[in-house]
Design a protein around this nucleic acid. Sequence first.
DNA 1: TGACAATTTAGTAATTATTATTATTATAAA
DNA 2: TTTATAATAATAATAATTACTAAATTGTCA
Lengths: 134, 134
Amino acid sequence: MKQNLKKSRQRETILKTLYQLKSHPTAEELYDLVKERIPRLSLATVYRNLELLSEMGHVQKLDTGGRQKRFDGNATDHPHVVCVVCGKVADIELQNDLNFFDAILDKRGYDIFAQKIQFQGICLKCQNMTPAKI
Amino acid sequence: MKQNLKKSRQRETILKTLYQLKSHPTAEELYDLVKERIPRLSLATVYRNLELLSEMGHVQKLDTGGRQKRFDGNATDHPHVVCVVCGKVADIELQNDLNFFDAILDKRGYDIFAQKIQFQGICLKCQNMTPAKI
DNA sequence: TGACAATTTAGTAATTATTATTATTATAAA
DNA sequence: TTTATAATAATAATAATTACTAAATTGTCA
């Protein structure tokens, strides 16, 4: 799924900065960080590149309930824990033989009360849709 | 968590309509449906009541990747499957002893390739925040 | 029942996250 | 270098949601 990217200082710095973070920033939070290195950076550049990078499988776009989407430099499928008060997101590890609530190895201090499980796929209708010729 | 609600024709019809659906409509889709019964209905009324109803635990607000949020008349924790092409959402049932991918009892025709697991809670910082006095 | 208070609504304006546009600048290819 | 391609900054446009407000509805209780 991953493809190579043309380089530009902005794109490289955005990606590198996101990789270095353990947090899951919004586009705007990441913009503020990268802006320290590239002061003339535009917010639209951050949005455009995060979209591109997530389409290419280099980063992950997260829907965590807040108004703003969040981004994760780790593009592999892994569970998250979200604070419903402040929106902060952390990675979490599961032990794959136990049931959900017991399986969390490190709760990261979160007081957990709910889970959201979502599978992603393609529905029957969309599977049968022949792609349009170019 | 559920509290009682004051009634108004609009609120009752919105809730009843959502309960009857097996689908997971956006606020706008639900608006179109309820509008058939209450032609002068306002979209803002639908948004306001869905917000209220979900805060009170009568319905569930879903973040499924699209721009619009979706709503589920079943407020209990249960897994969903989302079509990444058209956005359609379906309920899904898991067998609780198997690992994830194998545990899905009925895929509803979806061709599934990924999973998103999200726990919800309150982070350490927010737990220690004393609530403001009224 | 009727008078008043409280709640809810419709309609619309405002807000806000994200995306599109465009002229300019940077990068790559020849 | 010269020319073509792609990316950027800055800003405008879009679209989902929320806030506002005057009018309508509902609830309370004398």
